[in-house]
Structures are given as structure tokens and as C-alpha cells.
Design a protein around this nucleic acid. Sequence first.
DNA 1: TCCGGGCGTTAGCTGTGACTAACGGTTCCG
DNA 2: CGGAACCGTTAGTCACAGCTAACGCCCGGA
Lengths: 224, 224
Amino acid sequence: MPSSTTEDYLKTILIQEEADPGSLVSTGRIAEALALTPGTVTTMVKGLERNGQVVYEKHRGVRLTEAGRNLARHVIRRHRLIERFLVDVLGLDWSEVHEEAEKLEHAFSDKVIDRLDALLGHPATDPHGDPIPDVEGEYPASLAELTCLTECPPGDGYRLSRVSDQDEAFLRFAERHGLKPGALLVVHSQDPAARAVTVHAAEHDHVTLGREAAAKLWVERRER
Amino acid sequence: MPSSTTEDYLKTILIQEEADPGSLVSTGRIAEALALTPGTVTTMVKGLERNGQVVYEKHRGVRLTEAGRNLARHVIRRHRLIERFLVDVLGLDWSEVHEEAEKLEHAFSDKVIDRLDALLGHPATDPHGDPIPDVEGEYPASLAELTCLTECPPGDGYRLSRVSDQDEAFLRFAERHGLKPGALLVVHSQDPAARAVTVHAAEHDHVTLGREAAAKLWVERRER
DNA sequence: TCCGGGCGTTAGCTGTGACTAACGGTTCCG
DNA sequence: CGGAACCGTTAGTCACAGCTAACGCCCGGA
């Protein structure tokens, strides 16, 4: 059975690959994401290669193998289902569940996770809008095409779908302004000079976001 | 924060102390319970003493300190609440939840455990009838006095309260004969020569248990 | 083309918690 | 009361997964 360390590495690599498809993930990025020193990661990555979970190109980075990707998807499945459970069933706040799930994802067996999945009604996403892989490790087929808020011309007809950041402070900020998945959004203005965008969510006041913050919000255009 | 290894040792020591109050727990018993070699346990136990969690008397055994007992009680609380959750909410079988809870007990935070406790309605026992310590680490005050099935004269008016074994095969056997906590029992005969006792549970056939098996069953006398 | 800075790798070390094998204390029987 | 058997302890080793520090490759700028 893979160690929880292995699971953490593979999960991190998968997320980096998804953020920048087609390119190798550098050891440095992994080190930063896991808060480890670069040397530690280089050493570990060689172990992952020996296990057949990644392909490692020296000085360039790693890429998941099929086996590695499959394992990583299952870790992510566990993580996101646990987040849904913590929010939907136990009533925790979406800003605090990521930390909890980081530990729990290594302890739940697949059997228990499948029961949890059924209990929750086979949700398609976690509380942040991130998609939950199914039992086979595949993402739900019917995922809407998402647009980054930085790319949205002013107007209404947007629905917030995904908040891709796990920082507690940011998530609490987002919630204060109604910026949770499912919220209906109106984009008031894009100000390229100020690198800012002003929006408001239904029932909430306007809020102006800097580009980095806006880049974390993903919306879909509503059918009307 | 204590390592999960530390938690496992302290939990094991507490359970041994409860099984045989007042006497020291030998390193050998701990080794057997945790499936470790004796030398490993001797070394670890010195570490627990350095942490102030046990008092260690060379060649004689260990005893929990207040701090160690408190931590152990909390681990047991987590373990038993998780078992209840797995059975009551996720519908797992009582024979399989012990193994699952062994891993999960180290991953749940106290905050999440308290939510779980509330969700379950603050249960007094786990699915095997073992009492669940409260948030302070104290056992429920109103625990009925239990009698071992080996001590019960023939007659009716017994209620099965506790099945103190975690072996899957034994638990499945017990369930097949209706021997789950809450079951009403009739003791048909005690046969000291055969070291056996014959009982039946309401709605179930007679079953004859050897002394070791009967020793795992604890009953209370029903008010009538 | 050459050189320097930055990133990545290597080497060597640490702590945790396991193991085996050899040694030592206790106890109980004869 | 002596000794064997049993149990527990000690010593030495290993794997895992982290660290620091020194070294080396690669790429961009001059």
C-alpha cells in the first residue's frame, strides 16, 4: 500500500499537471506546494520513479504514469468527498475543511469512501466546486466549460462554479461577499489598468478584486 | 502533537489496565496486542516515560500517568465514535468497523469528532457495547453493572450489553446467533465440566459457547 | 561565446520506529 | 537453594522521509 507521503506527492503532481497541462512538473514546484526543501523532493521523486508512478527527467521535472495518475485521482476523490461530507453532513465551514481532509484522505478505505459517496448522493463537486473523480478515477463527463473571471466581459448571466484556492482567509473573504459556488454573478467592470474587476453576487454588495484574486474564480455562462 | 504510534501504545495500555485494574501492564502484553517484538516495546515505553505519559518499572511493566490516561481516553473516544458512525450512518457491519476505526482514529480532529458526537446524538456506547468517554475523557456516569456470562445462573431476564472482542469471525458468529448488544438472553445451562454455557437470544436458536467465548459476553439483569 | 545566477541534485546527517540477536533478571521447580 | 526456562532488556541495524550544505547544470545576457 502506498504511504501517505507517496499519496501526497502524487496528488500534488496531478494538481500541478492539471493547472498547466502538457508540461512537466518541476521538483521546485512540488517542494513549494508541500512545504519541503528541494533536495527532499528530488530524492523522493526518484523513489516514485522506481515505483513506476512517475517518469522523471533530470533537471526538467516529472510526469505521472498511468498508474501514478490513477492513484492520484483516487486520493483526490477521497479528499473531495470528505470535504463534501464535512460541510454537508457535519456542518463545518468550507474555509476549514481542506486542512481536515488533508489528514483524513489517507485514512479512509475505498470501501468507506464509496459508502460516503452514496450517502452524499454521488456529488459531482466538492464545496469549492472542484470536480470529484468517480470510482474509476474519471472526472464527471458533464462538466460545464468554465471561464476565468478575468476573461469575463461586463454583464450579468454568470454563475460562479469554482473557487480554486484553499486559503482560509481568502475563502472567508469570498463567503462574506457571497462568492460561493452556485452564486449568480454580475460583472460590473473590468479595469485592465488597475488589474482589477468589480463584481457583485446576488443579494450582496459590489466588491472589487485584484487580478490574482479574480483568477481564482471560475464561472459558467447561464442558459437563458 | 502525539504521533499515531504513541496514541496506539497509550490506547493499548489503557485497555489492558481496564481489563486488569491495579496491576502493571507488561511490555510483553503490549507487544502481543500491537503485534510488535518485545524489544521494540521496551524501547518505546522509555520514550513514553520521557514524555510523562507512563511510569515504567523495569522488568515489571508500565502504568499510565494522568496525562497519558487522558490522552488514551480521547483516542478511545475517537475510535468508538467512529465505529458508531460507520455502523449507524454508513451502514457497515459491526464485524468490520474495528479495523477501519484503527486508522481513522488518528486522523480525525477533536473538532470533527465533537460534531460527529452531536450528529449521532451523544451515544453512550459503540456498536460492541463498549462505553464512549465524553469530551472530558470521562465514561458515562450511568453505566449498568455488567456480569460476565460465565457467572450467570440459568434463567431468563438477561440483556446482552457488551461483546468484548474485535475478531471478525467471532463477531459474525455472534451475529448469526443474535448475540448483539441489546439482545434478550436466556441462559439454559451452565456446564462447568464441559466448560460450556448454552444460551439463546430472542428469536434465535440455542447455541453452546465454550468458556473463552462466553467470557467475551457481558450482560445486565433486566428490571422486571 | 562565455559567464553568472538560479534552480536542481548530491552527499551526508538526523529522528522515528521497526527488526534481530545476544544478554540478563525473575521465578519457580526440584 | 540452585538452575533452567521464560520473559524482558540491550545493542546494533534498517527503511523512511525529512534536513543542510556543497556542488553542478542550464539558460539568458553581455
